[in-house]
Design a protein around this nucleic acid. Structure first.
Length: 904
DNA sequence: TCTCAAACGTA
DNA sequence: CGTACGTTTGAGAA
């Protein structure tokens, strides 16, 4: 390193444990969680602090020092060292590991040193920096760090929380304590340090200590003259000289630890933004902290990374044919775009070639420009977008069409790394395309919009356009990045080419078709259900005699556990649960004549009926003029590869209860069609389990023709199949499905309401007879731990970094996910293959009948007159032979005028 | 106006 | 202390 480089080196040294601990207490533990029960408040606060300090202090090098668990040499000197501290709060556990993960992603070095404390690491590095003439900044709440302050060493002491810091320079130390920094350990030895359980000289505080030290120069000088000191304090000092000497020994920082010498080891810039965002996703961190990630921390130098930041690049306002021509340039062909329905500007489009970007307000386009734009979109050699179906449908509404060469980057990104927080255009632009964005402006109130001046309004529109243009522009590098990544991942290429990309068009078509609703039936049902809701409300209200919102768990808690003084239910974060299971249990413990019992009956009735009413209201909101509802099948929502259905969700329409089923009666074959056909896979997950585990018993179960759960139960309980009673069957069934979810003996006992011992025996008995299943499950987790991912039968991956976490909860959660993902994911693969087959065969046969819905293991088809036999054949065959497992794929088919009737 | 937790529907 | 989702609601933050 050259002399000029070393001139402006600044190393930031952080006491990791101390700061994490402060962050933990500064932020509410239950306010920050990764969504899986792991608190992340300390991780968040620490990361926030790091970002702030790096942004404001601009260090060139950073190191974070952590204490190791177990003792240090200081504990051997004094066995009470740091004694008397409270237990580490449970919610703090695991957060240090997570902080280390964040630091790794940021490329920030963190250090530990066997037998020494974080302070010694900091002392060593600070001393080195000083010797080299470099600056050092220490962030620590530990007072032992004060002794390190010098001309080039500044201490940042947190005052409040972890963001407000006091700068301790030599002058500041002198002013506060009346002695120079290097004398501080002497002072501390006299005064003592309660946090470390180091008692000082009774009756001597910082003032007296400073006075003595000033008088006698330093601690040895003072001790040499201890006999001369008068008064109570003098006697006290003489009585406690041993303590003082011990304290001084304890609080001296070690400055000679053997740590990496090369300054480059600690330099900033090894960060990986994508990795950081991945970790932030995992921690469920919000947008604010992402936005504030300084480029310097990641080693991204905006000045040298190829021109100005994306949002500052020139954005062409496309307001006429010339501007459009300028934007498209000569290259014409490679485009990227992002669109939005802006509250002020209406339909806005960001359009970019690899070298230029523009913003277009579609509503104000003249016809010539609009025609030219339409031609460009249809003829482009490749158009890169996030979420092609959404863009296509948005463009269609505005009178444009996309050509055939559309590349959906969301889909590619999803297959490569499922489970991300978002795959929208901005997420791709920033995670893969190197763009960065201001936080999204919040939606203005209608009144604000009305008062807005034309200038302000235009400025807002221009900003929205600029943002879209920046997003579109960043989709080009994102696309290149995805090309590179899929190039190295043949498994992903195959899933994309053979499954997801062709399926995307099928899903779009299904969305466009929609499913017909009998609006009259819907309205009648709604009226009836609303009547039940009102009745339940009335009756429940009459019992407690006060106004209570039954939809408010908080108000319910008051009524149940205070007004009615019922026994409390299981605890949740906000008090006690009022979910149906808890309330049913509670009700069973009460006298049927009691008011509590009756209140609960009406409450449960209210819950059930308002839930059902909610479906009807929801459907009513989205039904179109032709009495059809058009769900959107989301292809990048479920990490296992399953589809999800939104607006409305038609994958969770009630089916279990008779009243719920009446809602299914409102889904009907539409005009011009004769009937609905549903076809579902029976026990597909268990069949996949049999296939993957190659368990001979389970495979035999499926080949025997016997009812699956009956067969398995007869083996588990060692009785003949006809001796299996319903209780045995249902217990076995619970184990079978529980296993695919990673169910524990505890969970099983709770679900079946049996003892732990009985649950354990049940599971052991199961594994004894179906050893292949046990071996498979074990092997799945172990393989995933080694490779880092699980795989489906088609090779679809799911990455599970938490399998090696030191945090038990995270690890065990990841293990359950690892058990379930290949099974759920393979089932998703199979029905997706089936959908491709069914759709293409129906089109090839030129049938009018058409596939409308997918509900994970079920397809719903609308059948035209005279086509039933053909459709049934295509669906049965298409689903049944979608994939060759080692057990047959059994498909059940039902026919009916309504969705309920078509069940079978 | 937005975000979160609780509750609950499906496979 | 069983996986995967989406929607609605109330409550509290901003």
């Amino acid at each position: 390193m050259s002399a000029s480089d070393t001139d402006d080196q600044r190393i930031l040294l952080i006491d990791g444990h101390a700061m994490a601990f402060r962050a933990f207490f500064a932020l509410p533990a239950d306010g920050f969680s990764d969504g899986r029960g792991q608190a992340t408040n300390a991780v968040y606060g620490f990361t926030r602090m790091l970002i702030n300090v790096v942004a404001s202090e601009r260090p060139t090098h950073v190191a974070v020092a952590f204490d190791l668990p177990g003792g240090t040499f200081r504990d051997r000197i004094y066995d009470q060292y740091k004694g008397g501290r409270d237990e580490t709060p449970p919610a703090f556990h695991g957060q240090i590991d997570l902080i280390m993960q964040v630091l790794d992603a940021l490329g920030v070095r963190w250090l530990t040193y066997e037998d020494y404390e974080a302070d010694d690491i900091i002392a060593t590095l600070a001393t080195r920096a000083e010797a080299a003439g470099d600056e050092a900044l220490i962030v620590s709440s530990d007072r032992d760090a004060i002794q390190l302050v010098g001309a080039k060493v500044t201490l940042l002491q947190p005052i409040k929380g972890v963001t407000e810091m006091r700068r301790m320079t030599p002058a500041a130390v002198e002013e506060k304590y009346g002695i120079p920094p290097e004398r501080y350990p002497d002072l501390a030895a006299l005064v003592g340090e309660a946090a470390d359980n180091l008692p000082g000289v009774p009756g001597v505080g910082p003032k007296t200590a400073a006075k003595w030290l000033t008088q006698y120069g330093d601690l040895p000088g003072l001790i040499a003259h201890a006999g001369e000191i008068k008064g109570k304090a003098g006697q006290s000092l003489r009585d406690h000289l041993e303590d003082v000497e011990r304290n001084r020994l304890m609080n001296a920082a070690y400055t000679t630890l053997d740590l990496p010498e090369d300054p480059a080891h600690y330099s900033l810039g090894g960060g990986d933004r994508a990795r950081v965002l991945e970790v932030f996703d995992d921690l469920a961190f919000g947008d604010t902290i992402r936005r504030d990630l300084p480029a310097t921390l990641l080693g991204e130098d905006p000045q040298e990374s190829g021109g100005p930041a994306p949002e500052e690049a020139e954005v062409l306002a496309v307001d006429g044919p010339d501007a459009l021509r300028e934007l498209l340039g000569e290259e014409g062909g490679l485009l990227a775009l992002d669109v939005v329905e802006d509250v002020r500007g209406g339909p806005l489009m960001g359009l970019a070639t690899p070298s230029a970007r523009g913003a277009i307000a579609l509503s104000s386009l003249d016809s010539e420009t609009s025609t030219a734009l339409g031609a460009a979109l249809e003829e482009a050699a490749e158009i890169r977008v996030a979420d092609a179906p959404a863009v296509r449908s948005w463009l269609a509404e505005n009178g444009y069409r996309l050509g055939a060469q559309v590349r959906d980057l969301s889909l590619e990104s999803f297959v490569l790394r499922p489970g991300a927080r978002s795959y929208d255009a901005e997420a791709l632009a920033s995670d893969l395309g190197g763009a960065s964005f201001e936080p999204k402006p919040r939606k203005p109130a209608a009144s604000t919009l009305q008062k807005e001046s034309a200038e302000v309004r235009a400025e807002h529109i221009a900003r929205a356009g600029g943002r879209l243009a920046a997003t579109a522009a960043a989709l080009h590098p994102a696309a290149e990045e995805l090309t590179a990544r899929t190039g190295e991942a043949p498994w992903a290429r195959r899933i994309l080419d053979e499954l997801e990309q062709p399926l995307q068009r099928v899903l779009e078509t299904m969305h466009e078709r929609g499913i017909a609703i009998d609006e009259q039936a819907l309205a009648a049902l709604r009226e009836e259900f609303e009547g039940f809701v009102a009745q339940a409300k009335r009756e429940a209200g009459a019992i407690v005699g006060e106004e209570v919102n039954l939809a408010s768990p908080k108000q319910l808690q008051v009524v149940l556990f205070e007004t009615l003084a019922l026994p409390t239910t299981r605890k949740i974060s906000s008090g006690h649960s009022t979910d149906a299971e808890s309330l049913t249990d509670l009700q069973e413990s009460l006298d049927p004549e009691s008011s509590g019992h009756q209140f609960l009956s009406w409450l449960l009735r209210f819950r059930e009926m308002s839930k059902l009413t909610g479906y009807l209201v929801g459907l009513d909101k989205v039904v179109d003029a032709g009495s059809r509802v058009h769900t959107t099948f989301q292809q990048t929502a479920a990490a296992t590869g399953r589809l999800a259905s939104t607006e409305p969700n038609l994958q969770n329409i009630p089916v279990r209860t008779a009243e719920g089923q009446r809602i299914r009666d409102a889904f009907v074959a539409g005009e011009g069609f004769e009937t609905l056909l549903t076809a579902d896979y029976s026990q597909i997950e268990m069949r996949i389990m049999a296939h993957l585990s190659e368990d001979a018993g389970l495979i035999e179960a499926f080949n025997s023709g016997e009812d699956l759960h009956n067969f398995v139960a007869s083996r588990v309980f060692g009785v003949s199949p006809d001796a299996v009673d319903p209780a045995m069957r249902s217990k076995t069934k619970a184990v079978s499905y529980g296993l695919a979810y990673g169910l524990s003996a505890f969970g099983l006992s709770r679900q079946l309401r049996i003892s732990r011992a009985e649950a354990t025996a049940l599971r052991d008995g199961y594994f004894e007879r179906f050893g292949g299943v046990r071996d498979y499950l074990h092997h799945t987790v172990e393989t995933a731990r080694t490779t880092g991912y699980t795989e489906t039968i088609l090779g679809r991956r799911r990455y599970l970094p938490d399998l090696t976490s030191d945090n038990r909860q995270r690890r065990e959660n990841a293990e359950r996910v690892a058990l379930n993902s290949p099974i759920q994911g393979s089932a998703a693969d199979i029905i997706k293959l089936a959908m491709l087959r069914v759709e293409s065969r129906m089109r090839a046969a030129e049938l009018s009948s058409r596939m409308l819905l997918q509900v994970h293991d079920e397809l719903v088809v609308e059948v035209a007159a005279g086509e039933l036999d053909q459709v049934r054949e295509i669906v049965e065959e298409g689903m049944g032979s979608a994939y060759q497992l080692s057990v047959p794929l059994d498909v059940g088919v039902g026919i009916g005028r309504t969705w309920r009737e078509a069940a079978h």
